[in-house]
Design a protein around this nucleic acid. Sequence first.
DNA 1: CGCTCGGTTGATGCACATCAAAGGCTGTGG
DNA 2: CCACAGCCTTTGATGTGCATCAACCGAGCG
Lengths: 231, 231
Amino acid sequence: MTAIEAAIPELKALPLFKDYSSEQMLRITQGGSIQFSNHRDLLFSQGNPADYFGIVISGAYKLSKISPIGEDVIVHFSTPGDVLAAFIMAMPNPRFPISAKAMGPSRFLKIPKTTYIEAWLKHPELIFKIQNLLSTRMNLLQDQKALTKAPLSAKVALLLVKLIEKQPEDSANIVPIPLTRKEIAESLGASVESVIRIMSEWSKSGLVSTNDQQIQVLRADKLVELFCPIE
Amino acid sequence: MTAIEAAIPELKALPLFKDYSSEQMLRITQGGSIQFSNHRDLLFSQGNPADYFGIVISGAYKLSKISPIGEDVIVHFSTPGDVLAAFIMAMPNPRFPISAKAMGPSRFLKIPKTTYIEAWLKHPELIFKIQNLLSTRMNLLQDQKALTKAPLSAKVALLLVKLIEKQPEDSANIVPIPLTRKEIAESLGASVESVIRIMSEWSKSGLVSTNDQQIQVLRADKLVELFCPIE
DNA sequence: CGCTCGGTTGATGCACATCAAAGGCTGTGG
DNA sequence: CCACAGCCTTTGATGTGCATCAACCGAGCG
């Protein structure tokens, strides 16, 4: 409990919890706990029973699914403020449809399903905000689907642009999570080598720059052109 | 109004509205109207302002997005009971992120956004049911994403199996909507020719059969094997 | 009767996967 | 402190699934 109380100021900084008093926050997070994860720690695993949902507080988690071939496909990158497992609430015996793994040190606020039913449903704004988050995620999935026939470079460009869009204006277009080429590939259903070939092209021509898994987009406009028709 | 009243028995047959009294139904559909569509009619168009959401009553609609190359990519096939544009509620000035086009004669129940705020939010079960529908759709998108590296045949198999899964047990595994090969291709980001090559293979080996755009799956087990690892 | 629409088939080419090999960097244990 | 294993990145050579292009057929339709 103390851990949550300590985190409340940080939580109130998230758009989701903006405008809530500390007492309200306590009601909303009733029975919850804070999960600390190290790099590559598993937060939850596809197929396991799901009796909690929650919010990413810091760091990042990748959500992945096992493909028929047996390799992991990354479905989404979740950054602070993202709601995970939001859909389990409505189901009687929910299981996680995907796995969540930490990318670097991260923290996650676990909230029991019962708290959602008791506290969250009474706040229409909370429902709206969750729906907005889900809507964003669904739109991203749909946008990516619309690019299936487009060349791989378009897909990489979309991914990077969407990631920097979340950031505040003044962040110098730095991708907010430490992304390896392998993770980009797994997220796009491509091979590492292809992603590397595309991105080193971009590095040479000064569109992006990378050091130590920090990707910085220098010419966002050029990237946008790649997945957005010009004529 | 009379049109809606006349449709209420039909609406109450949908899982979404099961267990509601006729008076409740009137409150829930307050200010709504029933839209009749013919084959290929546009229900709403990507980018247009969205002040209503709604439910598919009969027939089917395809939801599509324009890809950068300019061709339509089908994002989802909506059958009776599906909620469309569910996410617009939470936004101040929403626009449809996709277009919806009728596949054969169809009917759609339009409900103004304001009615959602006044009536729907007071029914937690309704919120849950909508979340469940969205969850299903999101999971489908994620499943499809997990297949990006799999051969095209796996994708076609998944699509068909998911479509017949919605149906009741005794429906002889007939795909509930009239699907052309072109629509399958547009939905999977593939070319018509490739889809045809795969499906005529299946016809020859007796896995499926088609007449007049009615696709029947004869050996669902064999199709499942194609996208589900065996070992 | 020309039209569009859906289905089908074959030939050709390309974008990208796959395979192979190697170097840097980090942590870990003898 | 060094050796070794794992992970990430990179580059080149080779192969292939599927897109693309082109052509044709039958059916419905104004």
